[in-house]
Amino acid sequence: MRPLSTASLLLPLILAACGQQEVKAPADYALSGTIGGDWGASPRLRLALVGTGVPVAVTNNSGIAQNVVSAGVNTWQYGFDLPNIPGVAGVYQVVAFNDANNDARLTLGETVARNRLWLVFSPADGTFGPLELPENWPGDETELLPEMTVSRGWNLYDRSAVLGNGNPRSVTKITGYDISR
């Protein structure tokens, strides 16, 4: 009887380990900010990491741990985990979208919003770019990403600011990554 009791105690722990990740408060994620604007009635807001790696490998991943919480009329707070992608240099953005078909995927035709902040991942310190954005990038911006000096890991590049002197900058936690439509 003892082996059965031990097994029955371990089974819930094993099943819990295989389950979904814990939902955290938005500020407890690696990347956080607000989503604003008119998304229509009862939107199903989600986030996705979109981008391109080198060699070119388009990423559209909305299965990353995240939490979107209403903060009032047309305002939401969110948190999003940045994935560990060792060995793959790339440029990415976190975009907000209305998951109209409720499939937890960013699909063509769903309303999307993004900002001018770019996440550049590099497996080593050095020079990154220049880089042409893929044709299917959400939005209308397809300009060349300029050559820049980056640190190993995640770097934040603000396209609305002058390149250099802390732009891009190495990051481990990002707050204020605000997105609106």
Results as ranks from 00 to 15, higher is better:
residue 14 I to C: 10
residue 62 S to A: 15
residue 139 G to L: 04
residue 118 W to I: 02
residue 43 P to T: 10
residue 68 V to E: 13
residue 173 K to W: 05
residue 57 A to T: 14
residue 3 P to M: 06
residue 120 V to P: 00
residue 64 I to D: 05
residue 7 A to F: 05
residue 32 S to D: 01
residue 179 I to C: 06
residue 50 V to T: 09
residue 145 L to P: 00
residue 59 T to N: 12
residue 58 V to S: 12
residue 129 G to M: 03
residue 134 P to D: 07
residue 113 A to L: 09
residue 129 G to F: 02
residue 61 N to M: 11
residue 31 L to F: 01
residue 84 N to K: 14
residue 72 G to A: 15
residue 152 R to N: 05
residue 47 L to D: 03
residue 123 P to I: 11
residue 100 A to H: 11
residue 74 N to S: 13
residue 9 L to S: 11
residue 105 R to G: 01
residue 149 T to Y: 04
residue 104 A to V: 06
residue 139 G to C: 03
residue 109 G to R: 13
residue 62 S to Y: 12
residue 30 A to C: 02
residue 90 G to I: 12
residue 102 N to S: 09
residue 67 N to Y: 02
residue 107 T to H: 11
residue 61 N to G: 07
residue 95 V to A: 05
residue 159 R to D: 01
residue 88 V to C: 11
residue 167 N to C: 03
residue 96 A to Q: 04
residue 10 L to Y: 10
residue 39 W to V: 01
residue 132 E to N: 07
residue 31 L to P: 00
residue 132 E to R: 09
residue 56 V to Q: 15
residue 99 D to R: 13
residue 33 G to V: 01
residue 49 L to E: 07
residue 143 E to K: 01
residue 117 L to F: 04
residue 32 S to Q: 02
residue 39 W to H: 05
residue 153 G to P: 01
residue 44 R to V: 10
residue 90 G to H: 14
